[in-house]
């Protein structure tokens, strides 16, 4: 949890693998990296066993680059595809039982605040739609009701992709899947409205076909969660296997879905706007100057 944990132990540097050396010497720790610099520095995320062309992986990759202070960040996850990539990264990852990720993150976040005081340590939960909206629903909602200060990111692939294609609460009505051959009979859960009414200070939907927007959304959510309250990001990360999307059409699908049912939305409370403007200089949230009075 500091820049020291990515240094070589004295005398061991020549025995370390190349990837580790690159991470120490050219990683993002202690620097400000952005998506426009991608391809020119060593990323936190390493090789992982996710499927080729997976949009969820792309989102996780963008998210890891967007963390404001990666050296002070811990990710929390649960069963699902996402943890296969999130765990293959150079920042600590906590793997809870299925569905308790927001409960684990609550304790972790409180503990870090007790231990480190005002020095910001970010806790980011990244879990799938099943882990968050079905099995972990109570932990997720209650962490929001309790105003726990950490970021919750749902990797919404609208299916249980890891176990063969069962419908989840976030699957769209009528969707026919391998393990839901008659089609889903109920509407997609409105987690965004629940997040707002439960008291999240920042709620956004995002699709990974706009890397700069993903970066902006994640930075805002993590910064707000440091002091104001819970933040929630819902990201459309299609499952190209269960929804049979050819891998080279994954971004085309993301673009179509963004234009259809996953348009970019952002909800920021006034308190969070003021915090971002005053503490981190977000110009978009600064109070508008009064219009100049012109003499007639």
């Amino acid at each position: 949890m500091s820049l020291d944990y990515v240094k070589f132990s004295p005398g061991f540097d020549k025995f370390m693998p190349k990837e580790y050396k690159d991470m120490v010497e050219h990683g993002p720790f202690g620097k400000k990296t952005t998506v426009s610099q991608m391809g020119s520095f060593k990323e936190i995320l390493e090789e992982h066993p996710m499927c080729a062309g997976c949009a969820m992986t792309l989102f996780i990759r963008l998210a890891m680059i967007s963390f404001p202070n990666p050296e002070d960040t811990i990710t929390v996850g649960t069963a699902g595809c996402g943890r296969l990539a999130i765990s293959q990264a150079a920042i600590p990852f906590v793997y809870g039982n299925y569905g308790d990720q927001n409960g684990v993150a609550s304790g972790l976040s409180r503990g870090l605040r007790l231990r480190f005081g005002d020095k910001p340590k970010d806790v980011v939960v990244m879990a799938g739609d099943g882990g968050m909206a079905d099995i972990g629903f109570s932990c997720t909602l209650h962490s929001w009701f309790r105003k726990e200060k950490f970021t919750t990111i749902m990797l919404d692939n609208e299916v249980y992709g890891n176990t063969g294609g069962q419908e989840s609460g976030m699957t769209n009505k009528g969707a026919v899947l391998k393990m839901a051959p008659l089609g889903k009979k109920f509407e997609k859960m409105d987690m965004l409205a629940m997040a707002k009414s439960a008291g999240c200070a920042y709620v956004a939907t995002v699709v990974p076909n706009n890397p700069r927007r993903v970066e902006a959304v994640i930075k805002k959510a993590v910064l707000i969660a440091r002091e104001i309250g819970p933040t929630y990001i819902q990201a459309y990360t299609s499952c190209n296997i269960e929804y049979a999307i050819p891998t080279d059409k994954v971004m085309e699908d993301a673009k179509n879905v963004e234009g259809d049912r996953y348009q970019f939305t952002e909800y920021v409370t006034d308190e969070a706007k003021q915090f971002l403007a005053e503490r981190y200089g977000y110009k978009e949230f600064l109070p508008k100057p009064a219009p100049a009075v012109t003499k007639a």
Partner: peptide, 18 residues
């Protein structure tokens, strides 16, 4: 444009040499 470096799902796979 560097777009491909931002859209590859694999980390450090499409790299840039200026």
């Amino acid at each position: 444009c560097k777009l491909c470096t931002q859209f590859c799902p694999e980390a450090n796979t499409i790299l840039y040499n200026d």
